[in-house]
Design a protein around this nucleic acid. Structure first.
Lengths: 241, 241
DNA sequence: ACCTGAACACCGTTCAAGT
DNA sequence: ACCTGAACACCGTTCAAGT
């Protein structure tokens, strides 16, 4: 009997390999097409093999968020709190933008992994180091919310660009435009003005950098003002019935 | 042959009935358990029957958002822009809080239904009526983002309350606490302070009203300041390289 | 012409049977 | 003791066959 030669050993599966494969598969095929079965196939293993390394699909998604958090630059040491916070958020933004599915997944997670907790702990630390009271820091973190991850809710994802180009006749487009201007005159006004603007285009499908920084700086300036005023939540609560 | 008596006619299905049934089914069993099949069963029809009234599941979800938008109070007529915006957002918040799944679904939608467009058009109209330039209004809408719907990202959903009560021994709890204070000292500090606070408790599982209004008012005050200063995006862009 | 049962092509996860 | 193929209990959606 010929002794059976072992097939060339696949580099053995481990958690990191599984998570990284999941991230790049989601990058390639989209998060909605990422399934345990498809991921297993990509890795050349039977679906069940994945369950050795992640308890279930939710844990897989948590792990994928951790991979992304790992791509965010560590907190800058030099500058004051405002620049430190700003830089870290903009770095998070770059990491998130690299993975189109990330925003949705980050938003949908309810539990916080150690990596996420550490990320948040760093933020809190930056405010405290900047002289913010624990009280103000608490509320400021809530106000920051998901902007901590470097994204803003899209206002118009692709309103209008549905199948606009090819199929629709100019007449139909004109009719749609008329209907829009009748029903949503304000949206139209804003959209038109934005289109004339050189830098930002409504509906370009991607979170615009200027909009993001506008909102972020508005918040940071607000935080700064409150801190300088010695804002205190107990006072604020007394002031408002 | 006895003439077959028609079974008592079900009130015939229509789009509104389907959507309302979907909303209350999601209220009851959670959005993750809402399926076309289960909804059909609830309505006493075959799954295929639903496809007469909604093209597919995505359109069903869009329609469910419309039902919720319909629950939001119409814009107030009397007050200035700031109170008008504030009231409408807090009304949206009430509607969204009535349906635990709504936040997630609103966030996940990429297309905007007529009802949603109208809701946004109203907001834009409030700012314009308040003397905001089209330009500033545009950026302000982006800054408002998903806060337009009356929710903020949860910071801590139920971190720690996982299975804390029953199963875990006091010793294990103490150990976990120590581990937390070592790894996430800043989070702990903020969490402890918040727990002493009479009104807000971190991790109470629901978006806290005070946090929401804090962040909202910070933004509204910021908007007001910019408007009074005659803020202009072209200037802002020149000022920043 | 209309309606719908059965089928298709998937899921995530369990579990018992095989080595 | 370990591994995994088959199975379970679902999905959303298509489509052809039946009335």
């Amino acid at each position: 009997m010929t002794e059976q030669i072992e097939a060339p050993r696949r580099t053995p599966l481990n958690r990191v390999r599984v998570l990284e494969a999941a991230v790049s598969l989601a990058d390639d095929v989209g998060i909605e097409s990422l399934s345990m079965r498809r991921l297993a196939q990509q890795l050349g293993v039977v679906p069940m093999a994945l369950y050795k390394h992640v308890a279930n699909k939710d844990e897989l998604l948590d792990g994928m968020v951790d991979v992304i958090v790992g791509e965010i630059d560590p907190p800058a040491r030099g500058p004051g709190w405002k620049d430190a916070v700003r830089l870290r958020i903009l770095s998070a933004r770059q990491a998130l933008l690299r993975h189109p599915w990330a925003r949705q997944v980050v938003e949908s997670r309810t539990s916080r992994s150690p990596a996420v907790l550490e990320y948040m702990d760093d933020f809190i630390g930056m405010f405290l180091a900047g002289g913010f009271s624990v009280d103000l820091t608490h509320h400021v973190m809530h106000a920051l919310g998901s902007r901590m991850w470097g994204f803003t809710q899209e206002l118009f994802d692709d309103a209008g660009s549905h199948e606009a180009e090819a199929d629709v006749t100019p007449e139909a487009q004109a009719a749609m435009f008329q209907e829009m201007s009748r029903r949503y005159p304000n949206i139209l006004q804003v959209a038109m003005a934005a289109r004339h603007d050189d830098r930002s285009v409504v509906g370009q499908g991607c979170d615009d950098q200027f909009e993001f920084e506008f909102a972020l700086d508005l918040l940071l300036d607000g935080f700064e003002r409150l801190q300088e005023q010695g804002w205190d939540s107990t006072q604020a609560k007394l002031g408002r019935p």
